[in-house]
Amino acid sequence: MTHINIHIKSKRYPAIGQAQPHLAIENLQLSVQPSEFICLVGPSGCGKTTLFNIIAGLDQDFEGDISLATGQQRHPKIGYVFQNPRLLPWRTVRENIELALSGPQSNDSIASLIAAMQLTDMQHVYPERLSLGMSRRVAIIRAFAVNPDLLLMDEPFVSIDAPTARQVRTLLLQLWQQRPHSVLFVTHDLREAIALADRLVFLSPPPMSVITEISVPITRQDRNDDAALEAFRQQLLHDYPKIRTLV
């Protein structure tokens, strides 16, 4: 069970060449409950990727504090689906997935993930032969396969066709319900966010901070009902006019 507290006082990018110094995040506070599914919604370029890099520990040049507590004596495992797939071109699809695993993992569980993503035929090819959509799916499998305590997904379904995206979304929810873990999911699509999240967090343009947080009261069973989702979306846009500019 991972409990995450994020408090970033400020994150600045120094001036490089002609570019001015840039204040990317200012006074952002967010706490994530164990096994909570949060969707982050904000305009593009607002600093969501920067936030993810800070949470994943890749960027430590910021003022503030991130605590990831697993309740056990170990580092929380993080599965990160980057905005670009970041596969090793010189390793096959299967090897790319297996390399991310720290310990031995049953072949079956990886094989079933690969099958669920419809990549069984492609598992022994090198990533250069994959389409961008396929590469993205491999990156998603890699993040799932590590059995993360925290899953970071940075617009994972861009350039995946709609039916496949729907399947992957269903698979994501299945896996999340089988083995509860916290998920932070960036999207521009409010419908997608409502379909997935326990809580929506709306983020401002830079310097980024939290504008508002809204819990999604729709039960998991009712999430398949498109009409209920759409009604909630309309209600949201009506109740919170300022989020209209964000989505």
Binding site: N53, A56, G57, L58, I78, Y80, F82, N84, R86, L88, L99, A100, R142, V146
Partner: peptide, 9 residues
């Protein structure tokens, strides 16, 4: 990008 991926995993 790949170095970051390796660190993250």
């Amino acid at each position: 990008d790949l170095s970051e991926m390796a660190r993250c995993y």
